[in-house]
Design a protein around this nucleic acid. Structure first.
Length: 437
RNA sequence: GGGCUCGUGGUGUAGUUCGGUCUAACACGCCUCCCUGUCACGGAGGAGAUCGCCGGUUCAAAUCCGGUCGGGCCCGCCA
């Protein structure tokens, strides 16, 4: 007999079917017993009246792998209007050990208890509520791919084992590579720029490794980044708008497809407008300083509280939970950024913020070989180092005006699902204290 | 790198302020039994913790002190 998925059971009323899955819940009421069976499609209720059949489940814990044959009966009292009667149970994998955490009820996500959640991650993901986050994550990535592919971006994969650091700034992991020192890529930055010379438009969804000693709710040491790079752009706004439109599209699609899931995990309602509103860093400093009586006008970057504040501001005044901070001061620039020709104290660089958190950086690149070399020397970078040599080679042989983004997928999922810690949006998070599971 | 916090059965917590009736309580889970419409089922009973670890103070330590290990949060930095 062919297997029927639990979500399709109600289509077989009156027929005998077979379902396979995991024992999810036992409710014994004496002569009448209910068990729930979980498979990839959800849950089905099985009514077990035969004591001999029920005996097969004595000592069997949640997670026991079962095959059940029985008759589908329509009944208003059953969770989906139908359930399985007169079942014959076959235990494929008996589970006799009590699960260390509960998986049939919502799992506590208090910060101090997240460690337990991750210690038993393989089991906690069997919880239906936990799974929703990762189904939503998968859908987000699907819609992002869909949008970019439609706009003629080529999906690429760049090496993660590198001969040197790709950028300044973030700390990198060092490792032994056949006797030579190698690093783990903290971003595909220079590779994706090189590939603009070949494909014009590229994107990559891949892990990036950050060795920073940051223990906060928004840092993990292995992150999944969406990197986009596009050539022949007219100006910075074109790049900002593409990344903004992409985000609005993916969010709207996911909120439509997963409306029930998002509601059940208490995700906030989505508020977005047609375009992501933009504020210069200077404007944000002024607005924030005025509203909060704290002077941030001398900060080179936004402080975390400003990021939260401007998001609230944009939501109230512009009906958008997405907001751009643009024109960062030159003190914070990286060597490959393009200085703003209209205001040389600033860089053509925007940060995309969502629900109080920086989720992407969206700059324009310096594509003049000579200017770039100057900027690298100013940043004390060895232009002959193998980590930069080939990047400069591509630059020398013609890269058009281009820009793109580094986009934190984990952070996006966190905020979409209304979670409080980026680790909760990651299947197996890596942080300064955790390298397994 | 800096600062602040927490550690009690399998899980989540109470108790720690002010040491003593803590012989450590509650909920969930687990075990046995009862229960014919449960769906966070209900009821009766039961097992399970030397209170992270080491040392100190004291007649007496889950509780106070020191060290150590393991978490969490914030800042810096970043996605």
């Amino acid at each position: 007999m062919n297997r029927v998925l639990t979500r399709d059971v109600s289509k077989h009323i009156g027929k005998k079917i077979k379902v396979s899955g995991w024992l999810h819940k036992k409710r014994k009421l004496g002569g009448l017993n209910f068990i729930n069976l979980r498979d990839r499609g959800g849950i089905v209720q099985v009514l077990v009246e035969d004591q001999k059949e029920m005996e097969k489940l004595r000592g069997m814990q949640i997670g026991t792998v079962l095959h059940i044959e029985g008759k589908v009966v329509k009944d208003e009292r059953a969770p989906n209007g139908a359930e399985i009667h007169e079942p014959v149970l076959q235990v494929e994998v008996p589970v006799t050990e009590e699960p260390p955490i509960e998986i049939d009820k919502p799992i506590d996500h208090k910060p101090e208890n997240l460690d337990t959640l991750f210690e038993y991650r393989g089991l906690s993901l069997r919880n239906l509520q936990e799974q929703k986050v990762f189904k939503i994550r998968a859908s987000l990535l699907r819609y992002i791919r869909e949008y970019l592919t439609k706009n003629e971006f080529v999906e690429i994969q760049t090496p993660k084992l590198l001969a040197g650091a790709t950028e300044g700034g973030a700390e990198v992991f060092k490792l032994d590579y056949f006797g030579q020192e190698a690093t783990l890529a903290q971003s595909p930055q220079l590779y994706k720029q090189m590939l603009v010379g070949a494909f014009e438009r590229v994107f990559e969804i891949a892990p990036a490794f950050r060795a920073e000693l940051s223990a906060t709710t928004r840092h993990i040491s292995e992150v999944v980044m969406l990197d986009i790079e596009m050539g022949f752009v007219k100006n910075h706004d074109e790049v900002l708008d593409l990344v903004g439109d992409l985000t609005i599209f993916a969010l709207q699609q996911v909120y439509e497809e997963h409306a029930d899931d998002l509601k059940s995990i208490n995700a906030p309602q989505l508020i977005v407008s047609d375009k992501v509103p933009k504020f210069t860093v200077e404007e944000i400093h002024e607005l924030y300083s005025k509203a909060n009586k704290i002077d941030t006008t001398n900060e080179k970057d936004l402080i975390p509280d400003e990021e939260r504040w401007i998001c609230e501001y944009a939501k109230k005044k512009h009906g958008s939970e997405l907001v751009y901070a643009i024109d960062f001061p030159i003190e914070a620039m990286k060597f490959y950024h393009k200085i703003n020709p209209d205001n040389p104290k600033t860089v053509l660089w925007g940060d995309l913020l969502f629900r109080g958190l920086e989720i992407a950086t969206v700059p324009l690149r310096e594509n003049n070989h000579e200017t770039l070399v100057k900027q690298m020397k100013k940043a004390s970078i060895d232009v002959k180092h193998p980590g930069y040599k080939y990047f400069l080679q591509a630059m020398k042989f013609g890269l058009p005006t281009h820009g793109g983004c580094g986009y934190g997928i984990d952070r996006l999922v966190e905020k979409v699902c209304g979670l409080k810690n980026v680790k909760e949006a990651t299947l197996f998070p890596r942080d300064i204290n955790r390298l397994s599971p």
